[in-house]
Amino acid sequence: MNEQLIQTITKLVVEKLKSNEVSQPSAGTADVQIKLHSKQATGALTELPPPENPNGKVTFHQTTSAKPEKKSAVHPQPAEKTISKQEEFIEELKKKTPSRIGVGRAGSRPKTNTWLQFRLDHAAAVDAVYGEVPDKILHQLDLFQVQTRVKDKEEYIRRPDLGRKLSDEAKELIKKRCAFSPSVQIVTSNGLSAKAIEENLEDVYLSLVQSLGNLGIETGTPFYVDKGRVALMDEIGDVLQPDVVVMLIGERPGLVSAESLSAYLCYQPRIGTIEADRMVVSNIHKGGIPPVEAGAYLGTLIQKILKYEASGVSLVKKEG
């Protein structure tokens, strides 16, 4: 079946469910907002309070031969007040996490709303991996594009090692077009989320460039790598010999956000650089660190890396 169609239908169903609820006076649950979920899930899903006398009321039967105990008079009697207290408490907890907590259940399964929302977020995550970065963005930011040794998305996922190497043409191209041995080399790549680049790259990049400009730090010629992996910066470091590489790359999408961007930084990455010398600022997206603020922060972080001539664990050690 057509993926697009499935998504459209799912969306329709979710919206339908929602519009039903709006017309229903559902006391107290109206302002549950799921803020961080991917954009497709438009707005808040609300939950129906259980009806007074549910038709399909579930009853439990004793299946063993033991005599069913007489219904004792001891009912759990949570007073009106304690229920609302509990609900309030759950609301408090919900505010503190984007995770799907306190969503209720129907029997042993999630409720339809929750399930559809989950499917939708999962679909968004898959789309982010298989999506492409629009050329317009690269054009606007004046980034030229190179390839890794990966042929297509399937190979990209199966062979991480190939995503860590530049194609021969790419090597030639960056040698030709990029300034040699700059203080800072900015590299961008879609990585596992094209959506992350589409949504956040412009803001992070412009803010980062401004920040470095303010600090008087010279930058090289930035470019974009299609289907790159983080450790690709080692080979780029070998070819261009910069002091610091900062790589803005789409994160593996999750169910909270499919458009989260990470900035990986390393002081003098070269082939053979160990992972402990890399550092990362992650979770850059609308619901996480605002992209513009992240760019501003990265500038001062790079300044620190240059000052201590170290990154990652080495930087922490040197900083003392």
Binding site: S207, Q210, S211, G213, N214, I289, P290, V292, E293, G295, A296, Y297, G299, T300
Partner: peptide, 14 residues
């Protein structure tokens, strides 16, 4: 109110 202080400050400086 929101987390934009550094970028706004830097932009003013720029």
């Amino acid at each position: 109110q929101m987390d934009y202080a550094k970028v706004l400050g830097q932009t003013l400086l720029a």
